[in-house]
């Protein structure tokens, strides 16, 4: 299972890539496999405020609709419009072209609550 070392993770299988106060968010390789074929991503609205641990958007497969929880609090500053045309990017390239949204971080200290790659690896192996 691909778990890039340079990313942070949540227990709910989102990944976080940090660039200063700008945070990019997507779902992990493990999550996309569990979801199976993604058919639709209901993106958050630009400018929307999101709270850590609260649902920010929805990823749908044929038989399930799964909430994506925002790993951190902040304001949505970008959404991946490509997913509107090709939701399968979430399956094909979860850490790259399948990113979902960017936020500008509002609570610096929340970063500390995230998992690193090792911790996330342990988590999903416990699950399996």
């Amino acid at each position: 299972m691909d778990i890039p070392r340079d990313l942070k993770y949540t227990k709910t299988h989102e990944w976080i890539k940090r660039d200063g106060t700008r945070i990019r968010i997507g779902i992990t390789e493990y999550a996309q496999k569990e979801l199976s074929d993604v058919v639709f991503v209901e993106l958050p609205k630009l400018g929307q405020d999101v709270l850590q641990g609260r649902a920010a958007c929805v990823v749908e497969s044929v038989k399930a609709a799964s909430d994506i929880y925002s790993p951190l609090s902040g304001k949505v500053v970008a959404v991946n419009k490509d997913l509107e045309l090709d939701p399968a990017l979430v399956n094909k390239d979860p850490y790259g072209r399948g990113w979902i949204f960017d936020i500008s971080l509002s609570k610096q200290e929340e970063i500390n609550s995230l998992l690193d790659a090792n911790q996330y690896d342990t988590l999903i192996h416990q699950k399996a």
């Binding site: 639709f40 497969s61 044929v62 399930a64």
Partner: peptide
């Protein structure tokens, strides 16, 4: 079908 009750239940 994800709009529907048999999948999304209370939502």
């Amino acid at each position: 079908q994800t709009r529907e009750q048999h999948i999304r239940r209370e939502r």
